[in-house]
Design a protein around this nucleic acid. Sequence first.
DNA 1: CGGTAAGA
DNA 2: TCTTACCGG
Length: 326
Amino acid sequence: MGNADLRQLAVIEEVGFDELDGAVAVDAHNWLYKYLTTTVRFTRDDAYTTADGTEVPNLIGVVRGLPKFFENDLTPVFVFDGRVVGLKDEEVESRREEREKREAKLEEAREAGDALEVARLDSQTQRLTDVIHETTRELLRLLDVPMIEAPAEGEAQASHMARTDEDVRYVGSDDYDCLLLGAPLTLRQLTSTGDVERMDFEATLAEHDVTWEQLVDVGILCGTDFNDGLPGYGPKTALKAVKEHGDLWAVLDDEDEYIDDADRIRELFLDPDVTDDYDYDDDVDPDLDAARDYLVDDWGIAADEIERAFERIEESVTQTGLDRWT
DNA sequence: CGGTAAGA
DNA sequence: TCTTACCGG
């Protein structure tokens, strides 16, 4: 039941930032989530929580995460999710169960007086709140960072842009779904300090001598966000079966198995709900004073927490000028 | 999602 | 060698 199965099939190369340039369509949800779970420490609630208890770890996270793009000649285009798409009842149900399990553990920790565990579980349940989304957008707006609203899933829109928009060279996401969505080059680990992983769609197809449709079929057999996959089918077995029988239907026929809505799931990857009706200006001209005021005056962020990040943004944006691809 | 231990 | 289940982040 994991897309991580696809890692074993994907052609992935480590690349240095100096090998990259151009625009990258960043899956905003994935980037924010990753940033909040890795960089922002739940042990330091104080720095990220306002006087009235609103948690806005994203404000520091976003402003500290941006210089990495600018300093390396990458223009981020943040792609936000639209409406939630296509989740089956089973998936909704299992998420509800997960949430209830977490809440039970949280209650348990509260009763035991385990403050650290409470903070940890708390930060897991909160995560990407409406406030976090709204304030992230406002901050990006002030910093003049390009943003796109996806009609449905952000990673689908980002993958579509990388496939069809000649100015967009990469998708930025850690999600292996991007491979099934046909994103030519996906940059993983953009939030970490080390090297970036570049996942190559065409090279992956060539490596295993399969078509895009067949790769999607392999993914469905292993299991995706939308289905459970066949028991006993991991990446190797699924790939072998699809190549042997040609496509998903032939494999299911041979195994006398059935996957609910398989045709619909296939379409979610091969022909997702995306739009060409977007535009953005990659000539980034941030209003640094306004952004700084927003963080410090409106949200009470300590000025010294963000000063260095602002210096880096100012230097990199004014020095290189991010408009050289227009 | 990554790592890993266990089992088939 | 491959799949699964679990945990910690």
